[in-house]
């Protein structure tokens, strides 16, 4: 078996010639190629962010008046006694929504993939139904759930519970329940996105890996833990980044379901920011808050990104 040693070493992966043709031009003079993207990103993404950053250090207000640079808005926002509550709400809302959407999305995706593999009927319908929830605008989502959660004697869920002899639940009027209700509504709407991302990742897994594992004697849960999870890890992380940012920015569903109440029980950072700008006309304060939101989103995205595999394929 001397020949095997040569196959161990004869392993040079061929590299395409990097300096050839258009690719070569793009690599030696990248700027003209990147210019269109830089301009678009600069005009539509970077400028608003920089302007928000600038406004955060002014006293700007929607009601006008002379703009003066100051740290007052920054100080006011950071010392606002409501901020810890709002950040706490945001943490709970985001964490629960992300975990819930990932788990539920994973569950449904596994169900659909399994169903399709066994060619069960109705899988397309199931996928479509879940997607339908995602297509519903956030405000409409809030309205739908506010009808379901309504505590009026004619509220959908409570009157159904009543028929079964179960006492009405204060879905929205109790601070703890209100947060749970808002999370449920958000998970209901957001799950489809996670499902689609995870579904695509699951479809990409080589079927023979499961066969190899089955022959290797792996139990179903072991196949999930040792094949499925590692194979969809990247998709899960990217999905986590996307839905975390999306959840951090969610306020339309909250505003139409609870308006942030009762009290501040469901007031999340994005809603707080919205209220600061459009209720209090405090543009500077709103800018500070949106920067805070941006920093939190970036920090979380960076945290997730640490777990992304790098350098290898």
């Amino acid at each position: 078996m001397t020949s095997s040693s040569s196959s161990v070493s004869a392993d040079a992966v061929p590299r395409p010639d990097a300096k050839a043709g258009l690719m070569g031009q793009a690599q030696s003079h990248p700027l003209p190629w990147l210019m269109p993207v830089i301009v678009v990103i600069g005009a539509f993404y970077l400028y608003p962010i920089l302007d928000a950053l600038r406004l955060a250090f002014t006293n700007a207000s929607l009601t006008g008046g002379e703009e003066v640079y100051s740290l007052a808005a920054l100080r006011a926002v950071l010392t606002n006694p409501a901020l810890p509550t709002v950040l706490g709400n945001t943490a709970i809302f985001t964490a629960a929504s992300v975990v819930g959407q990932m788990l539920l999305g994973l569950g449904i995706a596994l169900l659909v993939v399994r169903g399709e593999r066994n060619s069960l009927p109705g899988m397309l319908v199931l996928r479509t139904i879940v997607l339908a929830a995602w297509v519903v605008p956030g405000v409409a989502n809030g309205v739908i759930w506010s009808m379901l959660f309504s505590e009026a004697p004619f509220g959908a869920i409570n009157s159904t519970l009543g028929l079964m002899g179960i006492a009405p639940v204060s879905w929205l009027s109790s601070p703890q329940n209100a947060m749970i209700s808002v999370i449920i509504a958000n998970i209901w709407q957001g799950t489809a996105f996670s499902m689609i991302v995870i579904y695509a990742a699951l479809k990409g897994i080589d079927e023979t890996l499961y066969e190899a594992a089955a022959v290797d004697g792996a139990l179903p849960w072991e196949r999930f833990a040792f094949i499925t999870l590692p194979q969809i890890k990247v998709a899960l992380l990217i999905n986590a980044i996307l839905i975390t940012i999306q959840t951090l920015n969610t306020f339309d569903a909250v505003i139409s379901l609870t308006g942030g109440g009762p009290g501040r029980a469901t007031e999340v950072l994005s809603l707080f920011t919205y209220n600061t700008v459009f209720n209090n006309f405090d543009l500077a304060g709103g800018s500070v808050l949106s920067i805070v939101l941006l920093v939190i989103a970036l920090a979380l995205a960076g945290l997730y990104a640490l777990f992304l595999p790098r350098g290898e394929k």
């Binding site: 066969e211 190899a212 004697g217 590692p230 194979q231």
Partner: peptide, 21 residues
Amino acid sequence: LSPGARDVAMVFQNYALYPHM
């Protein structure tokens, strides 16, 4: 019997090596 219980080993056409291990 399930594949794992048959005490057989299989080599697949595409090898089916676990990519993450």
